[in-house]
Design a protein around this nucleic acid. Structure first.
Lengths: 142, 142
DNA sequence: CTACAATCTCCAGCCACTAGAGGTTCAAGA
DNA sequence: TCTTGAACCTCTAGTGGCTGGAGATTGTAG
């Protein structure tokens, strides 16, 4: 176990610049270097980076991952904080799904209403120009 | 009709810096100015900015809005391009909903499995540390 | 020993804003 | 007419989470 950054990248499926970025923001510790200043990683780095990648895949932001990682360093403490972090994230995912579901129905209605004539008669354009014609209100989607 | 940027902002519910930003990126035309170089807007600007805001609320990106706006300038042309833009957006919304729905179920399972003991035994942490323990595969969520 | 792939650092760009500094102008009230 | 202060101006930098490129250096296989 003495991986170059490229080998680590292939092993964990995280791009090389992303690994350097994680080091820069303090998610990954700065590894030892060769005489020529190239990074060399060990098994712990593989585990930590995998953890980070899985958490990112699940949509956790860097701050949440930082907190989750700090929990793994204290295995005797209760895991409620982890619970809270996941719950918070689940909440935001659910809110996002609700928004997007509303959005989807608006978009579908727009497509249904479209008469496929000239732009002048296009309901899509009309709805955008005068929002009150649309069926539902909804918040910003970001 | 001769609105200051602040009046336009209140009328359309778009923040002042955002209006200037839209001008900068060419979504809004540069309006006439007073002798003291302050912007003054007319009814056309209200309509155009409303259009932009509604489209943004529906999650269209700036490029799509640019295309939609250019269609409104040619009311005799067919509206198929608008159709295509909406369809493309609907597609991406649906893909996003599918991703997030998968994600939601993963997060729910994580919470169900949590034993509320010490971190050492926490399934949440374990799943993150060793992703193969999780029930489903899923793509990146962004 | 020579290629050349991989690595290094540093900087810029992505999206769609948002915030702040530091200065100027407008409009209402005295 | 003058004063005040809210609103406006430009310019720059920051957000999150990377991603890509330039130009220089290092590691390694043949």
């Amino acid at each position: 176990m003495d991986l170059s950054i490229g080998a680590l990248s292939r092993q964990v499926a995280v791009k090389v610049p992303t690994i350097r970025y994680y080091e820069q923001i303090g998610l990954l510790p700065a590894p030892p270097r060769t005489a020529g200043r190239q990074r060399r990683y060990g098994a712990e780095d593989v585990a930590r980076l995998s953890f980070i990648r899985h958490a990112r895949d699940l949509g956790f932001d860097v701050e949440a991952i930082r907190e989750l990682l700090s929990l793994t360093a204290r295995p005797d403490q209760p895991c409620e904080p982890a619970d809270r972090i996941v719950l918070r994230h689940l909440d935001s995912v659910e809110r996002r799904i609700a928004q997007l579901t509303l959005l989807r129905s608006e978009l579908r209605h727009m497509l249904e209403d479209c008469r496929h004539g000239p732009v002048r008669e296009c309901r899509i354009i009309q709805v955008l120009a005068d929002h009150d014609q649309c069926r539902h209100e909804h918040g910003k989607v970001s």
